[in-house]
Amino acid sequence: MSFIEFRKTLKKFGELTVLQDVDLSIDQGEVVVLVGPSGSGKSTLLRCINGLETISGGDLIVDGLSVKGGNRQLREIRQEAGMVFQQFNLFPQMTALQNVALGPRKVRGVAKAEAMRQAEDMLAKVGLSDKGGHYPSELSGGQQQRVAIARALAVKPKVMLFDEPTSALDPELKQEVLNVMLQLAKEGMTMVVVTHEMSFAKQVGTRLIFMEHGKIAVDGNPRDVIDNPPNPRMKDFLSHVE
């Protein structure tokens, strides 16, 4: 069985169908890039994986556990699936170190001193070992997003979910976040990334999925499908992105 399996997954917001019977399997080690016009369901697809959105029909299995298995099971899934948000969502009353250490302490039950030591390692990994004592408001957007990546990694997930991680960043700050993501991919981390960064998709992605109206319209090798879009809508979309 694949690591993540969508089985005829349906998601509705009221009357609006956002995901329409999606079938999709993602294996460990894949770097899947999700693209598509706004409202196509790519963020919703991502947020269903860790249960931030509740699916309306079908099933969705993550590491052998169904997202429909109740709260306890959902928390287990969330520990296996770290998420990085467009708006960073760092806890403003905590320093960078405290942000990173919170998950291990309150979720994995790691003692405070040990959690802080691990948090220092995680911040070093994203190149911010000198910023541990800073509050989020004292960091640039790029730095905040790297702390957010370290926070997600600290819980030791098996897959990382990125929801437009560079969309809120100035162009010159995007690259520092993309570099951290590139490094993660090189280490073999399974990743699902919603992004408009086509160069990242080509360089790092092992698979590209183009979504349209809540369905998977294109699923293929990033280099192939970006250079030769098999679908006129995707061709049109790419011309607007690049």
Binding site: R75, R78, F85, N89
Partner: peptide, 18 residues
């Protein structure tokens, strides 16, 4: 308090009360 912070807490596997 921004909903994103609650989501960030839930996403690292914390129960809602925590």
């Amino acid at each position: 308090i921004s909903k994103g912070l609650t989501e960030a807490g839930l996403a690292i596997g914390m129960p809602h009360w925590k």
